[in-house]
Computed example of a mutant assay.
Amino acid sequence: MEFRGLGFVPLFIAFWCTAWVAVSYTLTVIYGHAPLLMYISDTGNYYPEKITFKIGFLGMSNANLFLALLLYNFILLHAEAFGARQPMIQKILLAMGITSCIGTAVMSVFETAFYPVTHGVGAIFAFACGCVYNLWQAILLYKVPGIRRAICHIRMASSAMAFIGVITFSGCQLSVFTKLCIGDYAKISEIVSIGTEWSMLLLILIYILTCFEPMQQLSLTVSWKGYTICKRENQDSAV
């Protein structure tokens, strides 16, 4: 079986993420399990929204892992545009992408209401590794031919802003946890944290959508012997 053009992968991930977040948030508000202004994780503490939360996060974790593997192969298929160290760099980036996906899975299994420390550690790895991975790949994709410069700019802007968001979010969380902020300042810090978290989700979705063009350049052939990923314009170049 051959799939010519894999642009449907980032489109599916974006649709999946938007759908489960919207459903989980709506159910949380309807059942009054959290206020309107809530962390994303607050949509997975109680039934029935806990079900959509877990399914959604686990599905997103696996889908993002697949996308990271595709990007890994995509960059290596354009190795001529990079230096000799690119294969090693891509292995490091792939490891970061996998770590981010594992952190996402941990977030889904251990909800914040009952396992706050484990959930928090998973969130740190998911967002931090994911944003560094996205930013690094966004820089590298500038060198790949056949991708519109405007898309590269959008990818870079969303990745950079998400990276800044991770720093802001971590700073706010740390200030509250260490009680550096109390009273009204703690409340402001919490509001900033919530807003930053939702903004990071939106920016990550934008980054995923910008992967449509590079994914369209790939062809995936699957058989009982395994799989092969090639450039669409040159089916003899395989990784």
Rank of each mutant, 00 (worst) to 15 (best):
residue 2 E to R: 14
residue 4 R to Y: 05
residue 5 G to V: 04
residue 5 G to F: 00
residue 8 F to V: 06
residue 8 F to L: 05
residue 10 P to L: 06
residue 13 I to W: 00
residue 14 A to M: 12
residue 14 A to K: 04
residue 17 C to K: 00
residue 18 T to N: 09
residue 26 T to C: 00
residue 28 T to I: 03
residue 28 T to L: 03
residue 28 T to G: 10
residue 29 V to C: 01
residue 30 I to T: 09
residue 32 G to N: 09
residue 32 G to H: 09
residue 39 Y to E: 03
residue 42 D to M: 08
residue 42 D to Y: 02
residue 43 T to W: 03
residue 46 Y to K: 12
residue 48 P to D: 05
residue 48 P to V: 08
residue 49 E to R: 10
residue 49 E to W: 09
residue 51 I to E: 10
residue 51 I to G: 01
residue 52 T to V: 13
residue 53 F to P: 02
residue 57 F to D: 01
residue 59 G to Q: 03
residue 59 G to A: 07
residue 61 S to P: 01
residue 66 F to Q: 00
residue 66 F to V: 11
residue 67 L to A: 15
residue 73 N to G: 12
residue 73 N to P: 00
residue 73 N to C: 08
residue 75 I to S: 01
residue 77 L to I: 10
residue 77 L to T: 07
residue 78 H to T: 02
residue 81 A to L: 01
residue 87 P to K: 09
residue 87 P to R: 10
residue 91 K to T: 06
residue 91 K to W: 10
residue 92 I to L: 13
residue 93 L to Y: 05
residue 94 L to R: 03
residue 95 A to Q: 02
residue 95 A to T: 13
residue 98 I to E: 01
residue 99 T to A: 15
residue 101 C to G: 01
residue 102 I to A: 06
residue 104 T to Y: 02
residue 105 A to I: 04
residue 106 V to A: 11
residue 106 V to C: 12
residue 107 M to S: 01
residue 108 S to W: 01
residue 109 V to T: 14
residue 110 F to W: 11
residue 111 E to D: 15
residue 113 A to K: 11
residue 113 A to H: 09
residue 113 A to R: 11
residue 114 F to K: 13
residue 117 V to M: 06
residue 119 H to D: 03
residue 120 G to E: 03
residue 120 G to V: 03
residue 121 V to R: 04
residue 122 G to P: 05
residue 123 A to Y: 00
residue 125 F to L: 14
residue 126 A to E: 07
residue 128 A to L: 12
residue 128 A to C: 02
residue 133 Y to Q: 13
residue 134 N to F: 11
residue 135 L to V: 06
residue 137 Q to E: 13
residue 138 A to R: 02
residue 142 Y to N: 05
residue 144 V to W: 04
residue 145 P to F: 02
residue 145 P to A: 04
residue 150 A to C: 05
residue 151 I to N: 11
residue 154 I to V: 15
residue 155 R to I: 08
residue 157 A to I: 14
residue 159 S to M: 09
residue 160 A to T: 12
residue 161 M to C: 14
residue 162 A to Y: 07
residue 164 I to L: 14
residue 165 G to I: 06
residue 168 T to L: 15
residue 170 S to A: 15
residue 175 S to G: 15
residue 176 V to D: 07
residue 177 F to M: 11
residue 178 T to S: 14
residue 180 L to T: 12
residue 181 C to V: 12
residue 183 G to S: 07
residue 183 G to R: 06
residue 185 Y to V: 11
residue 186 A to Y: 08
residue 187 K to N: 15
residue 189 S to D: 12
residue 189 S to G: 10
residue 190 E to H: 10
residue 190 E to R: 13
residue 191 I to A: 12
residue 191 I to W: 15
residue 192 V to L: 15
residue 199 S to K: 00
residue 200 M to R: 01
residue 202 L to T: 15
residue 204 I to P: 00
residue 208 I to V: 15
residue 211 C to P: 02
residue 216 Q to F: 00
residue 222 V to Q: 05
residue 222 V to S: 03
residue 222 V to K: 09
residue 222 V to T: 05
residue 230 C to Q: 14
residue 232 R to N: 15
residue 234 N to F: 07
residue 236 D to P: 00
residue 237 S to C: 04
residue 237 S to H: 05
residue 238 A to F: 03
residue 238 A to Q: 08
residue 239 V to D: 06
